[in-house]
Design a protein around this nucleic acid. Structure first.
Lengths: 372, 372
DNA sequence: TTGAAAGCGCTAACAC
DNA sequence: GTGTTAGCGCTTTCAA
């Protein structure tokens, strides 16, 4: 290929994405694809024998099996999975569908983390991962991936404001598992943490730290956030308290919105000395907004986040947060889906929730774990 | 977890506490899958006509086309893409392969962001996205996805320490595009930013801010990081300076390592008043480590990161960084891949690089763009 | 304009 | 053990 292109003298003018302009150098060789018949001919056996040898059929003696396997590898032959799936009527692919409510792009690192662990679990089972998105406007993607044969089942990440939207695929017989909060109206199995407990632990911790007026930053309409809010109320109620409505800041998950809402709330905010955010990303944003106004964390306000994404322990001050065990989650989602694929009806799973106490909520505590 | 039959083998079984959903409620119906023959029978036409109608073949009059389309939708029929691909010998799927050098899990938010934009561009083209990973031990994944017919081409994110590993798939005729640095030895087209320029802009900015001793935090073996380091040297050289070797901290991208290396470097560090990190995640970590030791940013040390991930502008202090236009990148990668699929030989693309000046590098500057 | 028929690349009875 | 054969669900000549 040509050597790396010369640098644009002015980087701004260099929106030079004219990729399609192809240099007519070495023609990309068509790469004639091998197929089973070729291997059969080369090995002097029938196609059926090659198929059996390559799939380790017991009837084929080890000697020929090895010979054929070796031959196949030497010519870079790979069985066409599409054709095999068609014939076997069995797709070794799972769709992972990320729900986006307002067509915003995925951005929360928590999602990537969960996705990574799902990928691990799927890999381990020999399944491929088809990544898709769905919005409230196009909720059918989930169903389609299975009905058009691209995937055997679907793992859904995130929930719509109205979780019932997800009942439809389930009713149509789509094998699916959902990450999120378990609500009574759901027909599908979910894997998640105990959000109410998480909210409770976070809030109780703040109360124990001496906070008197704890604000809540999150979106009520969102099922998980709402449960965390319930935990927030319970922790208060347990002490005979009731948080003032003015302390509740209703904000969607997107960072941009969070900053704006929180900043404008601050201008007319009642006094507060604690803040519980329904995600770490929100917490980071809130802390930054406060810092700009001279409000110091944890000195003036103690903060607790949610998720325990990597960032939470990497920023300064490090963020006290409610941990969601993303590794177990990925595993449980995949296990559950395979159970469904075998016709079972897996239960929903509630994963353990732990409060990670860090700097943002206490002036002198080392990073560590605090069990409920 | 009390399911009778389907207890997912939870590695930390004791940890799983509660179960909240139903067990034998909704009967998971087998969901007899429709196929084209069924639609044909229902519509009183042949399979061929259904196929043509559904794919908008011009020979079919609009009336019958609509009738069949409507019928298909009313019974939730979806064309089996696997079978269609097989027949058409044309897979509408692209594999996105994330390279992991040390089998670590993906974690940098930059990756997720890029992935999201690739997904957008692919969606728009009507292609599905197969997510895969490859490590130095298993670099063949890239080739396999195409050779076994699962994907038409591959987009590779990240580069190995030895980018030449990626030449093999290219030589085998695998259509592929790579995100990363363009090096002379590469046979494949890449999309990336001008890393040398980025490093230069970052360092020059620090010098302009009055920094005298600027440390470099990054991994030399990594192609992109190394180019940024070259820019770092050039900015110095331009002023007749040469950074002391002790100011170079060689650290892999993983946050854990970064903290450790940087912290131990700090204990015996020479004086420094500037720090250029090859990623924003590293910058955030470094700032936190310094904060723990009472080193304030930007007061004592001015910091510049790289990537401009969302977090960079959300933390406090917000991070001055070199922006990588992830939206253009996703687009260019996909465009380039499609060019290859059409037998063209796209050039490598260098995307514009801009320095985003924020709080971490100047005591009193508002968030904004600073042209080079 | 529509239908019949021949495969796409592979697997699995069912023979031998 | 191995080969023959009949499809998997669809698209597309080719004929009508």
């Amino acid at each position: 290929m040509t050597s790396p292109r010369s640098r644009p003298s002015d980087p701004h003018a260099a929106a030079s994405s004219d990729v399609s302009a192809s240099s007519a150098s070495a023609p990309l060789r068509p790469a004639k694809r091998m197929q089973m018949g070729d291997i059969a001919r080369l090995a002097g056996v029938s196609i059926a024998t090659v198929s059996r040898a390559l799939s380790g059929h017991p009837a084929i003696p080890a000697a020929t099996r090895d010979r054929i396997t070796e031959l196949a590898r030497s010519v870079n032959y790979q069985v066409n999975v599409g054709a095999a799936s068609l014939r076997k009527r069995d797709v070794k692919t799972v769709a992972v569908c990320i729900l986006v409510d307002r067509l915003q792009s995925i951005s929360d690192p928590f999602i990537l983390s969960l996705l990574g662990h799902i990928a691990d679990a799927l890999d381990q089972r020999g399944y491929a991962l088809l990544l898709t998105r769905a919005s409230t406007e196009q909720p059918d993607t989930i169903t389609h991936m299975v009905e058009n044969g691209q995937a055997a089942g679907v793992i859904v990440i995130g929930q719509f404001i109205h979780p019932d939207h997800l009942n439809a695929p389930m009713l149509r017989g789509v094998p699916m598992m959902v990450w999120g909060a378990a609500l009574p109206s759901m027909l599908y199995p979910v894997v998640g943490t105990d959000n109410e407990l998480g909210g409770y632990l976070a809030t109780r911790h703040l109360l124990e730290q001496g906070c008197q007026r704890i604000a809540f930053l999150g979106e009520h309409q969102h099922p998980e956030a709402d449960l965390r809010h319930a935990g927030y109320r319970r922790a208060h109620a347990e002490r005979g308290l009731m948080p003032a409505p003015q302390l509740e800041i209703n904000s969607p998950f997107e960072p941009g919105h969070t900053r704006q809402r929180f900043a404008s709330w601050l201008t007319q905010a009642p006094e507060f000395d604690g803040l519980f955010c329904v995600s770490d990303v929100m917490a980071v944003n809130a802390i930054a907004v406060m810092a700009e106004r001279g409000i110091r964390v944890p000195h003036h306000v103690k903060v607790v986040g949610y998720d325990d994404v990597a960032m939470a322990s990497h920023v300064h001050p490090s963020i006290t947060t409610v941990r969601q065990p993303v590794d177990l989650a990925g595993f449980a989602l995949v296990e559950g889906l395979f159970a469904m694929l075998q016709g079972q009806r897996p239960d929903s799973t509630v994963l353990p929730t732990v409060l990670m106490v860090r700097e943002s909520s206490s002036d002198s505590v080392e990073d560590g774990t605090h069990a409920p």
